[in-house]
C-alpha cells in the first residue's frame, strides 16, 4: 500500500528498458558468473574456494598483482593530474584550435589496434630491449595516451558547465587563474573527478589491450596483466570458472574504492527539490 502511495508508474515505465537491459546484460550474467565459480566442474572438482585457491596459487598471479599495484600507484594519479591540468589549461584562456586539440588528444585512444602498433613503434622503436625496468613504464605510457583524451573531453565539458556568474564573482574578488582552478573549478567538478578515479582504478587493475598490443612489438610476456591470465584461463585453457574467479577478484578493489567514495561524498544524492 505504501509502495503505491509513494511511487508513481511513469518513472518505472521510463526506466524499464534500461532495467531490462541491466537484467539481461549485467545482473543475470554476474549471478551466472558467480554461480559458475562456486559449481564443481571437471576442471575444478571441488568448485567454490578451491577454484579461488587454484588461481591464487598460479605462478603468474603474484607478479601480475605487482604490475597492477604499480599502475595504481603511477598510472592512476598521473592520469588524474594530467587530465585535470590539460582540461583546466584548455578552459583557462582563449585557445585557438581548442576543438582540434581535444580531437588530437583523443586520437591515440580511438585508433584501432593495427594502427596503434605503428604509432608505438614510432615512439619506442622496433627493437626495444624489454626488461623489468621499462615494460611497466611503457605499458603505463600506452594506457595513459589511450585513455587520457576521452577524460579530457569529459572534464573539459564539466568545466565549461560552471556558471559564468560564479567565476566572474571569484575574479572580482581577486582570484587569479590558479586560485580559480583550485578553489572554485576543481571542487565544483569533484563528482566527475570521483567518477574518473573509480573507472581509472578499475582500468588499471583490469588492463588488457595495452600489454596485448605491445606483444606485437616484442613484449615477451603474454600474461603481463591479471586480465590476460583470466582471459587465458577462460578462452585458451577452457577453464571458465578459474577465469571468472580471477575476474571477480579483480572487481573487489574497484568496488571497495567505489563504496568508500560513495560513503564519503554525496555521490549518489538525488537532485534536491
Amino acid at each position: 500500500m505504501a509502495f503505491k502511495k509513494k511511487y508513481r508508474a511513469a518513472p518505472l515505465l521510463m526506466i524499464s528498458p534500461y532495467l531490462a537491459l541491466m537484467l539481461f546484460c549485467g545482473f543475470i550474467p554476474l549471478i551466472y558468473a558467480i554461480d559458475e565459480v562456486s559449481k564443481p566442474s571437471w576442471k575444478n572438482l571441488n568448485g567454490s574456494f578451491s577454484t579461488i585457491y587454484k588461481i591464487l596459487g598460479d605462478f603468474r598471479v603474484i607478479p601480475d598483482l605487482g604490475h597492477s599495484i604499480f599502475l595504481l600507484v603511477v598510472y592512476v594519479p598521473i592520469t588524474i593530474v594530467s587530465v585535470l591540468a590539460l582540461s583546466l589549461l584548455l578552459d583557462s584562456t582563449h585557445v585557438p584550435g581548442n576543438t582540434f586539440m581535444r580531437l588530437v588528444f583523443l586520437l591515440p585512444g580511438i585508433v584501432s589496434g593495427g594502427i596503434s602498433v605503428f604509432i608505438w613503434m614510432f615512439f619506442i622503436g622496433n627493437h626495444v630491449n624489454w626488461n623489468l625496468n621499462n615494460e611497466a613504464w611503457i605499458i603505463a605510457g600506452v594506457a595513459f595516451s589511450s585513455g587520457a583524451g576521452s577524460w579530457v573531453v569529459i572534464q573539459y565539458g564539466s568545466l565549461r558547465s560552471i556558471p559564468h556568474e560564479i567565476l566572474e564573482a571569484a575574479r572580482v574578488d581577486g582570484c587569479n587563474r590558479w586560485e580559480l582552478a583550485t578553489k572554485i573549478k576543481i571542487p565544483m567538478i569533484s563528482r566527475y573527478i570521483g567518477y574518473m578515479g573509480i573507472l581509472l582504478t578499475a582500468s588499471a587493475i583490469q588492463i588488457y589491450s595495452e600489454p596485448a598490443l605491445l606483444t606485437k612489438i616484442g613484449l615477451p610476456s603474454n600474461w603481463w596483466s591479471l586480465n590476460q591470465v583470466a582471459y587465458s584461463y577462460a578462452f585458451q585453457a577452457g577453464d571458465f570458472a578459474a577465469g571468472t574467479a580471477l575476474s571477480l577478484d579483480m572487481l573487489i578493489p574497484s568496488v571497495i574504492i567505489a563504496i568508500i567514495f560513495i560513503r564519503k561524498t554525496d555521490f549518489l544524492k538525488r537532485s534536491a527539490y
Binding site: L12, F27, F235, L251, L268
Partner: peptide, 29 residues
Amino acid sequence: AILQIPFRKFLLFITLVTMLIPITAMALP
C-alpha cells in the same frame, strides 16, 4: 537523478558495479 523510484541507490550501485566487471567474466554468461 530527478524522479522517485524504489531501490534508487541500489540501482545506481549495480550500474556502477556492472560497469566495473571485466568482460572476461561477462562474455561466457
